[in-house]
């Protein structure tokens, strides 16, 4: 990497940060409980729109794992999400009506909140349909992980997106508020992921899974990226460059070992494909607020009309993190 390239990335990072700071004006604080945040607290950041039914389980899941405070941007929900969040004792919530797309799909808003509140904290950036799984997550809280990462001088932790889906048509089993989504969407693809290195940012670009298999069999290059780095010991100089797929400075993207070893990594179980998905896909298609002209949602809407099945004979049923580790989707690294 030449000095010029390094400098370019530096400029880009600065530009991102300035942009994020400017975009703070789009956010209106509804409930600000950030005064409660203690210096060692674990924070979760999220952007959402119309996710009321998912919120109770989402918040409980992360509370149980030891998250101390949630900082959430509500992008103009009309299903009561905002009101529900405002009632929660450990949630600070901001509201905006502005375009999701024009804030780089929420990245600018969260970059600002992380800049303002995340400095020197371990920050987890997840969507309400993403559930963070890490080695030993059944017996150790997230704090055990972050303490170990601190002791190992590791600043960022990788967690690939693992798409979960139900058996049978998506609409067959309705999701109830408070329910564990993994009761319905408990199947996943175990071994059809491909990856390439992004030479500029140094991150891996991972594609595959059921979305690539069913929705993009002929245009695999359009399939969504699955690599994510959601857990970072934040510094106000950092920023996410594209969703949580990659970070700047680029050293934070080095979450994989290049010399044959395995670094520790986790997964984000992605419970997107519940019965709520069909209406969501249509709505999102209309709003056209998603990545690359919502190509993803176009493909979904197209296929969803013939009610496809994501499940196949070789789908794996989710049991626990050890199963995912054995399958090679995540790794304990040298954490024992």
């Amino acid at each position: 990497m030449s000095a010029l390239q390094t400098y370019r990335l530096r400029v880009r990072r600065r530009h991102r940060l300035v942009r994020a700071i400017r975009k703070r004006r789009e956010l209106r604080s509804m409930v600000d409980r950030t005064a409660q945040i203690k210096s060692t607290d674990l924070l979760t950041f999220s952007t959402l729109r119309n996710e009321r039914v998912r919120l109770p389980y989402f918040l409980d899941y992360y509370r149980n794992k030891g998250i101390n405070h949630f900082l959430i941007v509500d992008n103009d929900s009309d299903d009561g999400s905002l009101e529900y969040l405002m009632e929660q004792p450990d949630v600070s919530v901001w509201h905006t009506r502005k375009s999701y797309k024009r804030s780089k799909f929420g990245v600018d808003w969260l970059n600002w909140l992380q800049f303002r509140y995340g400095h020197n904290h371990w920050c987890l950036v997840v969507d309400p349909d993403e559930f963070f799984i890490y080695p030993f997550c059944d017996t150790r809280p997230i704090r055990a992980l972050t303490d170990w990462l601190d002791a190992s001088s590791i600043k960022s932790f990788s967690a690939m997106l693992l798409d979960m889906y139900p058996r049978g048509p998506i609409t067959e089993q309705p999701y109830q508020a408070g329910q564990d989504p993994m009761e319905i969407a408990c199947w996943f693809d175990a071994g059809n992921y491909t990856m390439t290195k992004n030479p500029q940012y140094g991150n891996l670009w991972i594609q595959g899974g059921p979305r690539s298999r069913v929705f993009f069999p002929n245009e695999p290059e359009l399939a969504p990226a699955l690599n994510k780095i959601p857990l970072v010991k934040w510094n106000r100089r950092y920023c996410y460059a594209s969703s949580t797929h990659m970070l700047l400075p680029r050293g934070l993207n080095q979450v994989y070992d290049e010399w044959g070893g395995e670094k520790a990594s986790g997964l984000l179980l992605h419970a997107k494909f519940l019965d709520t998905f069909t209406t969501k896909a249509e709505e999102e298609l209309e709003r056209n607020e998603h990545y690359s002209g919502s190509v993803e949602y176009k493909a979904y809407a197209e296929r969803l009309r013939d009610a496809p099945e994501l499940w196949c004979k070789w789908s794996e049923k989710y049991i626990n993190w050890r199963q995912l580790e054995i399958l090679g989707l995540m790794s304990k690294g040298n954490w024992a």
């Binding site: 990856m195 994989y256 044959g260 690294g333 024992a336």
Partner: peptide, 29 residues
Amino acid sequence: IFAKAVERRTKGRTGLYMQSRYPNEGWEN
């Protein structure tokens, strides 16, 4: 147990390419 953990970190699992193991050419074991 700890020796195994160290081996997993330094040698990794043969033939596995994943989010936290992406060996350079020639370093795959």
